[in-house]
Design a protein around this nucleic acid. Sequence first.
DNA 1: GCAATATTGTTATGATATAACACTCATACC
DNA 2: GGTATGAGTGTTATATCATAACAATATTGC
Lengths: 166, 166
Amino acid sequence: MDHQESHTHSSHNHNDCIETALATAETLCLEQGQRLTKVRRRALELIWQSHRPLGAYQLLAKLAEEGFNSAPPTVYRALDFLLAAGLVHKVESMNAYLGCAHADKPHKGYFLICDSCHNVMEFDYQDVHTSLLEKAARHGFELRAETIELTGLCAKCKMASTGANA
Amino acid sequence: MDHQESHTHSSHNHNDCIETALATAETLCLEQGQRLTKVRRRALELIWQSHRPLGAYQLLAKLAEEGFNSAPPTVYRALDFLLAAGLVHKVESMNAYLGCAHADKPHKGYFLICDSCHNVMEFDYQDVHTSLLEKAARHGFELRAETIELTGLCAKCKMASTGANA
DNA sequence: GCAATATTGTTATGATATAACACTCATACC
DNA sequence: GGTATGAGTGTTATATCATAACAATATTGC
Ligand SMILES: [Zn+2]
Ligand SMILES: [Zn+2]
Ligand SMILES: [Zn+2]
Ligand SMILES: [Zn+2]
């Protein structure tokens, strides 16, 4: 699991990201006997089409535009499925949802969240995880999930603000 | 800042915790020219009286019982003040608020959250913080705040469950 | 006292998420 | 092909969390 570099903020063909993510999703669901239904597939695609984490109701609106049922349970069910399958992460501090580029390698989502542009970069540090695991154990705590969300100023925004001041 | 050991789950006189926390709050507010008004003080006290993180509306209900205004802004204003003063933390993954026992030493709140009993223990590991800081910097990211919330099974609940199975 | 500011009251609304039950569709078995 | 089964979806209602906007009151500094 080496996704130190996020798709966000880099110049790339994001369509490729989306296609790859969807192909991975198809494969994973097939392997695990899970059904990637129309609404689930489209929800995942819409989440990926946003460069930022998408709120449940934003997603619901997009789905509704396309003729899907527009009541909240529709989107929350799709999100529940995608979360359980590890295809998306929830950013707790934003109440928003983000596609995961490494769904094939189950992992905890660690995020860098920019206060200014609201872009989110997923990062991975095995040593932090190991350290947290060990320290939780020291408290007799059996670790199951980790919410690691770091907020601040991303490189781009930092440059933009210092550039403006100079 | 050495609060590896939380007040939660230990046998102690919790009233002492509350009194200490309130005394600290008084002192800090005085030092910083902040006003710990009746509703703010009582809110802090009520949060402390709960051994678990308290939701905003739970707190609101308790305040209302005591004759305070029972509209949401009352409680959210008090919480905003207490959060800004570092007297409480918000647990993002629970949408709930927890008194901080070390408000005099500003710090990030790192939490161990039990899925079973919903108790929350605040812990501190300088090395994790240092590591995250350094790694954020490696991405050109200027770190401002950290949400570190680990969920799982606390020692007590783990023992209870294994005990029940044995 | 009086003006300026901070705090609180009040009403309304926005934003996020789930409960409950009906209905439809895919699958597997015969 | 029927048809029972269970997974998935539709629909209505409601629960839960949070803020906007403006009026009224209390505190502070002069
Ligand atoms: Zn991921
Ligand atoms: Zn940014
Ligand atoms: Zn603390
Ligand atoms: Zn527990």
